[in-house]
Design a protein around this nucleic acid. Structure first.
Lengths: 128, 128
DNA sequence: CTGGTACTTCTACCTCATGTAGAAACTATC
DNA sequence: GATAGTTTCTACATGAGGTAGAAGTACCAG
């Protein structure tokens, strides 16, 4: 249950930006941002979607457990449940988890990581 | 372009088994195996699918670049393009690749790996 | 060579996820 | 209470994946 659609991902990108800034976005916020072309990442740039479209997507993301919605306030506030990094790492674990031979997979995985990243990993594992 | 359906995965499981044994499977082989209940992993256990169903799935897997088909021989022979481990590792890279802050993701990822696996990683990284 | 059997290709249908949005219900405010 | 913004419900279109029939193709037995 991992994959996101294009629009879903775009919305998550906005929410993840808010997550870093510890901001809970309202629907209006999101719409404003999505129209702004600077938001390259957000894909769907300036596509001028209907309000309800974004709402629907937010509901679906909520159902998927990726978004939390504050229903108390009047314009509801939406926020990503976890950071983009956490989410991605979790995804990686999901992918890895389905493998019978996890260690073999890890070996391959490590094999094709950039040098910088290998260095980072060494540090994290207390190797240097 | 990563995800596989349930049946697609089941078929890949069979083909991956063949990959280890360097065997190119025919349709008949696959059908025989899929009916065999020992093949827990294969899911879809003994579901007795129509021949064409499996063929269709194989075609789709071929289109996705996961399966290679020898068209020369009469019963065509099918085989996984890469091992399950390679494929999984590649998937992990795909997931990681979409992240802007790869190193942060790796940090989280490493944080939730079993001790044994951490040890494996140390070995792998120590050598390179 | 000829028919039957096995194999392959084409086409099709169903369901579900996702993108998209209108209609209606709701709420705060003037 | 009318109005404008917000939220919910409902709905349709498209594409992926599961499933398989019908028809075409190839190969062996006789």
């Amino acid at each position: 249950m991992a994959s996101l659609g294009e629009l879903e991902r775009a919305v998550m990108d906005l929410l993840w930006a808010g997550h870093e800034a510890a901001t809970a976005n309202t629907l209006r916020d999101l719409l404003a941002q999505s129209t702004r072309p600077e938001n390259g990442t957000a894909g769907h740039e300036g596509k001028d979607l209907a309000v309800t479209t974004v709402l629907t997507v937010l509901s679906r993301l909520e159902r998927k457990g990726l978004v939390e919605r504050e229903r108390g306030t009047r314009p509801h506030r939406y926020q990503a449940v976890s950071s983009r990094e956490d989410h991605t790492a979790e995804l990686m674990h999901e992918v890895l988890g389905s493998a019978p031979d996890r260690e073999a997979v890890l070996a391959r995985f490590i094999g094709s990581v950039t040098d910088t990243e290998a260095e980072t990993l060494r540090k994290l594992l207390g190797l240097s």
